[in-house]
Design a protein around this nucleic acid. Sequence first.
DNA 1: CCTCATGTTACTCC
DNA 2: TGGAGTAACATGAG
Length: 276
Amino acid sequence: MPELPEVETYRRFLDEVVLHQPITAFEVRDAHVLGTDEETLRQRLVGQHVTGTRRIGKNCFLELSDGSALALHFGMTGDVNAYRHDHDAPRFTRVALHLADGMRVAFIDPRKFGRIRHAESVDHYQKDKRLGPDALEVTATHLQQRIGTKKMMIKPLLLDQGITAGLGNWIVDEVLFQARIHPERRGNTLTTKEFTALHSAIQLVLSTAIGHEATYRHFPASFLIHAREWDDSATPGTEQHRFCPRHPKTEIEKSYVGGRATYICPRCQPAPIEAE
DNA sequence: CCTCATGTTACTCC
DNA sequence: TGGAGTAACATGAG
């Protein structure tokens, strides 16, 4: 479920497993996830080692000893893990990096929307993909400059990786709930105060999620995420999770905004007045 | 059988 | 050019 917090968790994991180990082989089990030609990747990887890891939004980078980088994007279902023996390779392993110490790093992706690419540098990739600044780095002023002039709805604007990188569907819902802003508000109707609230909410949600290593059921009860259908923290039958954390009698509403499933509290997040 | 899904991109049309 | 809407991608889960 790779949004920014998951990808940050993956990055930290990779940082512990892969650093400074020479890469001995590049194993491709399903070339569908390759965004760069297999032979090119093999040639650029084998014999080198990873000098550091980076992350911009939902993209994770392994920086290589020649200054170039391996860029990992996890799509909707991507994951990483490590194993030692071929028969222990996780289900849906699509690609594996073999390391000199015998460890193998699996790029796992059931749905195969993820991609592995080679980039001349992280900066090069960021420009190429038109990635905005990472959501943890972004300022309230930047948000106001990039969003405050747009007529589009705030939810799709926050999902736009070119404005700020790393916010995905559930995080945007959580951020808007914490900031008490309705997802269909137009960018150019938000006040400076609301941009400040947005910025704080982004910090709160991301730092909380990273702090819990993106394990949703450990999130505070004040979070909207517990209302999402796939949240398993609610005891079946209690239906507590269907209500707003701040308004125990107000039911969380599900709708579609910009084609994406969207959850709001109608009391915390008043709908914009349809006019003008 | 059917519907839905955390992301991204490429189209269409106005 | 901007913006809205939609399909497509590939597959598992319920």
